[in-house]
């Protein structure tokens, strides 16, 4: 019978994965809010975050804080490059075309990563020492605390940008009415590029934080990204609060299903519940209803 300590352990495991799903979900939401599309390169921006961290540490020999900042910045730049050289030249307003374009770009990014970093699994060191900390009988890695801390900081920063800066105002403007935004002189192309940069930073941070736990390869972001996508839908696609709640909920569902019911069917249980939620609330938990 699981004790209270065990339950705490499952809770930590769930929240760790949940925080990562939430970061990725936020990346999906930012682009969705300004362009109205699902950006599938998000999954590769996660892998890229881990790759850049690896290179910064071992190729350039940077200390960890600098390497982490560099990895996030480089992932943000990659996001901008995807928008500028991948999406914008298509000059298409058709959402379906754009979404397919992101799928193609995602395959290209994975190919590039395979060429640059190779096909082998790599080990990324955690931010600080790997000795587990005991907390009320349960144990957790320092990396898990870093994940909670930095995810929270990133979310607060994101919300602050959106609510309290001119840039955020412009982004909200482009999201709600691109034509009107253009009339008042907002450069929609630039705003979209910024949204890709933020998506890249979110994905890159998620990748840099989680790969010390999961190990790193060119396709590590695919499954994580898929879960992040599911989390974004669960929370109501586009809603920031929803993305965070959706991510944490999905992580907890997985962990508790594995612990309480059956480890073999935990994904079936977690995604079954996700479907159930969407049957009852098609717009997601925090969705704005019909658009």
């Amino acid at each position: 019978m699981p004790t209270l300590t065990d339950f705490l352990q499952f809770l930590f495991a769930g929240l760790t994965n949940g925080a990562i799903y939430a970061l990725i979900a936020l990346g999906f939401c930012v682009v969705h809010n300004t362009m109205g599309i699902v950006n599938f390169t998000q999954v590769d921006l996660v892998s890229l975050g881990g790759m850049f961290l690896y290179s910064a540490l071992f190729l350039f020999g940077l200390p960890m804080p600098l390497a982490l900042a560099g990895a996030v910045a480089a992932a943000a730049l990659s996001g901008m490059a995807v928008e500028r050289f991948g999406i914008r030249p298509s000059r298409s307003g058709n959402h379906l075309v754009l979404i397919f374009l992101t799928i193609g770009l995602s395959v290209i990014l994975r190919g590039i990563m395979k060429l640059v970093w190779g096909k082998n699994r790599m080990a990324v060191p955690p931010l600080t020492a790997d000795e587990p900390i005991r907390l009320f009988g349960a144990t957790l890695l320092p990396q898990i605390l870093w994940i909670f801390l930095l995810t929270t900081a990133a979310v607060i920063l994101l919300i602050w940008i959106f609510r309290h800066t001119t840039l955020g105002l412009c982004m909200r403007g482009v999201a709600s009415n691109p034509a009107a935004a253009a009339v008042v002189g907002i450069d929609a192309g630039r705003i979209r590029m910024v949204s890709f940069a933020i998506a890249g930073a979110m994905g890159g941070l998620a990748g840099a934080l989680v790969t010390p736990i999961t190990t790193l390869s060119y396709d590590v972001g695919v499954l994580l990204g898929l879960k992040g996508f599911a989390a974004a839908i669960l929370g109501g696609f586009g809603s920031f609060g929803g993305a965070i709640a959706g991510g944490l909920l999905l992580g907890l569902l997985e962990s508790l299903a594995a612990a309480g019911l059956s480890s073999a069917y935990k994904d079936v249980i977690a995604f079954g519940l996700l479907l159930l939620v969407l049957f009852i609330r098609p717009q997601g938990l925090f969705g704005a209803g019909k658009r």
């Binding site: 495991a13 994580l224 480890s263």
Partner: peptide
């Protein structure tokens, strides 16, 4: 006996059950 998905990234839940 416990199992996990080959792509899973956290097996603490299964290991806790096994330890018990």
């Amino acid at each position: 006996q416990e199992s996990f998905g080959p792509q899973d990234t956290d097996m603490t839940a299964q290991l806790t059950r096994l330890r018990n």
